[in-house]
């Protein structure tokens, strides 16, 4: 089972039929774990090209495409699809949750007073980010302004590390708000679990780097109903004791990964918890039509592109195939 208290209700939500018909076709191109293992089994990297025609990247792998541009190709595919799906949705929330990380990269660029934005503008319009880059702080997104230190203009004197944490916190708050706005209990619960997993990853990574957890907590808060959890984790300096505090399925994954040894296990935790969260999100596909189905599609689509990028760029970069197999591990298409 998923460990999630809220399950999607199979059925039909009016207004979402058109987009759900479209994503049903795109889901046909999702590939399972065996497909990716098959790609890794190929001796020659060039032999992968015909197989990639069966994936979500079908239209993007033209004969003239340079292999070195693969990450760019994947990025273009992600945006083209996400924006097409977003334009068909009655509300953009289920797509925005997945596009937001890139918009926050733009926001980070803006706060560095740079206007060369690396990603398309979806959640935050260009005008807003340009204004922010010129120092017009009132133009900042609401999720950033919710940080208690915002009113004192403390942001202008923040160290780069603190600014990164602050942006992480703003991003997580944005996710919680966006999920709230969609009005689906299932999506709200899924996003809450995602945010919880990100919080644990952030704190654990900070602990591994020797960054005081209180400092992280100060710049990450507030996180709605997860605020208490962040406080508790930051107070407990030993990550071995976190599993009980986190609880639920993420707590179980944390405990399982920590049993493997005392070395830095953050990447393993992040990878394993991503797989679990993907399994949960996949339940949204039970909806014939509705925001849950779109959320589920976007989670699967993002995962497919991540696996494709991992396999192709990994092989191009000469990464050991056994290592890539382990990375794909329990991931499923």
């Amino acid at each position: 089972m998923t460990g999630l208290a809220v399950q999607p209700v199979p059925g039909y939500v009016r207004g979402w039929g058109f987009v759900c018909g479209g994503i049903a076709v795109l889901e046909e191109r999702f590939r399972d774990r065996d497909f990716f293992m098959g790609l890794l089994a190929l001796e020659e990297v060039g032999d992968m090209i015909p197989h990639l025609q069966d994936t979500v990247l079908r239209e993007y792998l033209t004969p003239g495409a340079e292999w070195e541009d693969f990450t760019e190709i994947a990025k273009r595919c992600f945006y083209d699809t996400a924006l097409a799906v977003r334009s068909m949705c009655p509300s953009s929330g289920p797509v925005d949750v997945f596009v937001a990380p890139y918009d926050f990269m733009n926001l980070k660029t803006s706060l560095a007073q740079n206007t060369s934005f690396p990603y398309p503008f979806v959640v935050f319009p260009e005008d807003q980010l340009v204004a922010l880059a010129k120092g017009e702080l009132p133009e900042a997104p609401e999720s950033l302004k919710e940080w208690p230190g915002w009113s004192t203009s403390e942001i202008q004197h923040l160290a780069p590390l603190d600014l990164d944490i602050l942006l992480d916190g703003a991003y997580l708050r944005y996710l919680l708000h966006a999920a709230e706005g969609i009005g689906s209990d299932f999506i709200r619960a899924c996003v809450r679990e995602r945010v919880k997993a990100k919080v644990v990853t952030l704190l654990w990574r900070a602990h591994a780097l020797g960054i005081p957890l209180k400092r992280v907590e100060n710049h990450l808060q507030p996180l709605g109903e997860l605020t208490g959890l962040v406080e508790d984790l930051a107070l407990q300096s030993n990550p071995q004791a976190w599993a009980a505090l986190v609880g639920g399925e993420i707590g179980d994954v944390l405990a399982e990964v920590q049993e493997w040894g005392s070395v830095d296990r953050v990447p393993e935790f992040a990878s394993k918890v991503d797989d679990r969260l993907l399994s949960v999100a996949a339940l949204g596909g039970m909806q014939t039509s509705g925001p849950e189905a779109v959320f589920s599609f976007m989670a699967g689509f993002e995962h497919q592109l991540r696996l494709l990028t991992l396999v192709v760029t990994g092989r191009l970069g000469g990464v050991d195939r056994d290592g890539l197999r382990r990375r794909i591990g329990g991931a499923h298409g």
Binding site: F18, G21, I23, V25
Partner: peptide
């Protein structure tokens, strides 16, 4: 109408 919406979405791609 319900079936048509879904079918129109499918036809957009196929």
């Amino acid at each position: 109408a319900t079936a048509s919406h879904q079918a129109a979405g499918v036809m957009r791609e196929k």
